[in-house]
Computed example of a mutant assay.
Amino acid sequence: MFILILLVIMYPLQTVEATSISKKLDTVEEKYDLEEISVAEAKELGAIPIKFNTIDELDKFLAQEEAKEEALAKENVLVENEEKSTFAISDIPILSLFISKANAASSTASKTLWSNGVSTTKGYARVTKDKDKKITAVSTWSNQSGVPWPIGWESVTSYHSLKSGKKSGTATFKGNKIYYLILPVRDMAYKKYTSYTMGF
């Protein structure tokens, strides 16, 4: 009988607590534009879980991550590696008659889009220029290296646009940050659609 009375008292308290946690979680989801995905999908994308004892801890963590991301965006670190092509069209005189833009050179520019010390997401643009330094081809991509903890990366698309003189441009990288969370309520996973840009 005592156990039954205790259960009758405890059940409403647990329900109220779960409702309160769910409301806080809804607020955090909206604040950081998180979209819930299945834990199985997060695992498939290689995400490693991170545990939070309270929703407030999660909120604080996400706020810190946004602050880091904003600081990194301000740094705008760009690394460029010049790679001269080993084959120059001008080496074969007959081809130079048909292809006017000889001596093309390509370089790869990269920018750290997001980093936390154990994981780094970078954007890349391989740019080929002709002898007049005009861009003739661009290839863009992004990837994550290191341990995908606590945030994984799923590349969705990348593309570029050239400025009018075709001597520079902007690469855009879009993807989902993947969060696999162990929360007081249950294990959950989220993705957040994110966009980054890089000049080249």
Rank of each mutant, 00 (worst) to 15 (best):
T121E: 00
S145A: 15
R186C: 06
I9H: 07
A104Q: 02
E29H: 01
S22C: 06
T86C: 08
F98V: 03
K101R: 06
T128P: 05
T157K: 15
P12G: 08
K163V: 13
A125I: 02
P148L: 10
S115D: 09
L162E: 09
I3G: 08
S145G: 15
I5F: 11
K84F: 11
K192S: 07
V77N: 12
A42E: 00
A67F: 12
L95M: 09
E57Q: 12
L78N: 04
T194V: 04
N176L: 04
S110G: 02
I48S: 07
V39M: 08
E36L: 10
F52N: 04
V147R: 15
E65N: 14
D56C: 13
A88G: 07
S38N: 10
T15E: 13
L4S: 15
S142D: 12
T19Y: 12
L97V: 07
K131W: 14
G146N: 14
Y190E: 02
I89N: 00
A73T: 07
Q144H: 15
G123M: 01
F52Q: 05
Y32C: 00
T121A: 05
E83F: 06
K31Y: 10
A63K: 09
N76T: 10
E44T: 11
D91W: 07
F2S: 14
Y179C: 05
A42T: 01
E70T: 14
S100Q: 06
T136L: 13
V147H: 12
F173P: 02
P184N: 04
P49H: 04
T172D: 09
K84Q: 10
V77I: 14
L72I: 13
V118Q: 05
K134T: 13
I182T: 08
I5A: 15
L25A: 03
E154M: 10
F52G: 06
A40I: 05
S142W: 03
V147Y: 14
K74Q: 11
L78A: 15
A88Y: 00
E36S: 11
N116G: 01
F200C: 03
T170Q: 09
M10L: 13
S115Y: 02
L62N: 09
N176W: 03
G152L: 11
A125L: 03
W141L: 06
E80F: 09
N76G: 08
F173Q: 02
E82W: 09
G175T: 06
Y159A: 14
S106A: 04
L78T: 11
N81M: 15
A73N: 08
E41H: 10
